[in-house]
Design a protein around this nucleic acid. Structure first.
Lengths: 157, 157
DNA sequence: CCAAAGACGTTATGTTATAACATCTAATGC
DNA sequence: GCATTAGATGTTATAACATAACGTCTTTGG
């Protein structure tokens, strides 16, 4: 089980590195490490939690270490910031531009990222009707995921 | 001009007080003062900017003073928190429950609040398709308002 | 009046994020 | 190769955002 998981992780990291290369950027060790933590996390992670993990390997790491990596990952489309939680999550499909719709479970904290271009289009249309040009949209929805709604008792932190 | 503006503000504050009373709550002086600041603001305001304004009258006011008022106003539906800016804005129509779609201008910082129930329904439908029950949604869109997009040079801060 | 609940005062602290500047590293041109 | 330079990182300090905790006051209902 751990093996399969590791394999997926390595695969994702490789794809991310290639994605960066395509953009003329580099997935450095620090960026890779932060991305690996996000990919391995069950849900989103806070910057200072990431920092604590990084510090296990690199005791001298400081806040800028992780914030720089996060800025890079978010700008590159490899991760998203969840504004309503001040937390970060790996992007589910960074190779395809999409408008993320984040379903954030308030109980188990897992995040499901959907993409609905028609929803995004409707939103842009509403905005345009008011003379507003959309540059970025961030739809975050709080609620309960299927497991937690159905009374699952294992998901809670 | 100032007269009309003051009149509107008083009207809004009165309506807000009545709204609170209907809910069995009170719009106290501090809450009213914070709401008045939000209503008078051109765009959103930060908690510590509100605090600075409050301190002009009440030099001993501290962060909890303003955060308590803001928590109350947001819970009562009289204000919204803009998660992507860590800022607060008065609700445009607190008497009618609605799903706000916030158009936030990145240049002049004005906020236009729309309500599109069909958009909200579509969003809830997407979520339900993944077994997710929506509890709260916060749609924040960043971009440029009509004036700023059209090259207005007066709106910038 | 008395008790309970809610609002507020006050101090301290926790949490999130960035400024500023030094140093290191890697790609580029010569 | 070697200098240049842009990008990345190290490091210290601090700014910006938010809440915990506890005491007091005020209102309200019994």
């Amino acid at each position: 089980m751990k093996h399969a998981h590791t394999h997926d992780l390595e695969h994702d990291l490789l794809a991310a590195a290639q994605w960066c290369a395509k953009r003329g950027e580099k997935l450095t060790d620090q960026r890779r490490e932060v991305l690996a933590l996000l990919l391995s996390a069950q849900g989103s992670m806070k910057a200072y939690d990431l920092l604590a993990e990084i510090q296990k390997q690199r005791p001298t790491a400081a806040p800028p270490t992780v914030y720089r990596a996060l800025d890079f990952l978010v700008t590159a489309g490899l991760a998203h910031k969840l504004e309503s939680k001040n937390a970060f999550v790996a992007c589910c499909d960074f190779e395809h531009p999409h408008h993320g719709l984040m379903l954030i479970c308030d109980r188990c904290h897992k995040v499901t990222e959907l993409s609905d271009e028609r929803l995004a289009a409707r939103l842009a249309e509403d905005a345009a009707g008011h003379g507003f040009s959309v540059a970025a949209q961030d739809i975050e929805v709080r609620g309960l995921c299927r497991n937690c709604r159905d009374g699952d008792t294992k998901g809670a932190a």
